[in-house]
Design a protein around this nucleic acid. Sequence first.
DNA 1: TATTAAAGGAGAATTATTCTTATTTGAAAA
DNA 2: TTTTCAAATAAGAATAATTCTCCTTTAATA
Lengths: 142, 142
Amino acid sequence: MKIEEISNKLIEKGLRVTPQRMAILEAIIKLNNHPTAENIIEYIRKNHPHISLATVYKVLDALVENSLIKKVKTEKDIMRYDALMESHHHIYCSDSDRIEDYQDNELNELLKKYFDKKEIPNFKIEDLKLHIIGRFLKTGKK
Amino acid sequence: MKIEEISNKLIEKGLRVTPQRMAILEAIIKLNNHPTAENIIEYIRKNHPHISLATVYKVLDALVENSLIKKVKTEKDIMRYDALMESHHHIYCSDSDRIEDYQDNELNELLKKYFDKKEIPNFKIEDLKLHIIGRFLKTGKK
DNA sequence: TATTAAAGGAGAATTATTCTTATTTGAAAA
DNA sequence: TTTTCAAATAAGAATAATTCTCCTTTAATA
Ligand SMILES: [Mn+2]
Ligand SMILES: [Mn+2]
Ligand SMILES: [Zn+2]
Ligand SMILES: [Zn+2]
C-alpha cells in the first residue's frame, strides 16, 4: 500500500491529513495482525518518537468512526484494531493472543443462504462473523 | 434452577461452597443476559449488601477457570459473563449493549460439516461461534 | 470442637482509556 | 503567498474496570 493511497483514504472521509493519522493508519495496515494501541505506538515511535498516547487513542476512535478501521472483539481488557474492512472472519488461538483473518466466500454464501431461509424473529441481520477458536499446529509455525 | 443445583455445580468442581460464590453464580444464571461485574454486584447487593468488589472479581475468575461460566467477547472495555455453558452463538444488537443467546443445532451441523470438508491448514478447530450482528425490530420489543 | 488451607474484605495500586486545556497546524480563503 | 481558524495534537491529570496486598474469616475435614 502506497503512502498516497493511505492519505486518499483520509481525504475520502473528509478527515484532515496529519502525520499522526498517516502513521497510525499505516501502522495498522503494515502490522497487519490486529494490533493493540500499545503495539501501534511502539511501531510508530521508531520514526515518530514524540507522538502522544492521547492522540493515538483519539485517532483510533476517529478511524473507527469513519469506517477506516474496525475494532476486534476479544475477551481481554485490551482493544485491538483491524485494517481489513471487508466483512471477514477471525481465527483465535486458544493459547496465545494470535488472531488471524479468515476470508472465505464459500462460507459467506453458505451462511447468507442459511439465514435467508431461517430468519431470526424481530431481528435484521447486518453482519455475520464467525469466531474460529482452536490451536495452530506447531509444524512450520508462522 | 434450584439452590441445591447451584451448590452441586461448585462441589463437582471441588470448589468450596460459600455464600458469595452461591450468590454470584445464582445472579449470573438468573440475570441471564450476559451481565457485567457491575450488574452482578447490583443484583447481589439486594440480599447480600456487604459483598466486596474484589471478591466478585475473584469469584468470577474462579468460575471461569473451573468452566462454570464463560467470558463473552465484546468490543467494549467491560467484561461480560455467561452461564450457558453449551457451545452457542450470540446475537449482538448494533445500537445497544443487548446480547442474546442463539442456539441452533441445524447451524452447528452445517458448520461442522463445512469445516470437516474444508480444513484450515495447520489449525485444529476447537469451537465455532457465530456473532450475529444487527438490529432488533421495535415491534413487540422484549 | 479444633485445625488449617482456602476464601473473603477493605482499600490501595494498576492500567487501559478518556478528558482537559493550552498549543499547533492543515487547508480553505483571501 | 499569507492569513485565518476550526480541527487536531501534546501533555499530563483524571477515570474506571480490574487486580493486588495483606489481614481476617470460614468451610470442610478430622
Ligand atoms: Mn478501562
Ligand atoms: Mn480496563
Ligand atoms: Zn481481521
Ligand atoms: Zn450466551
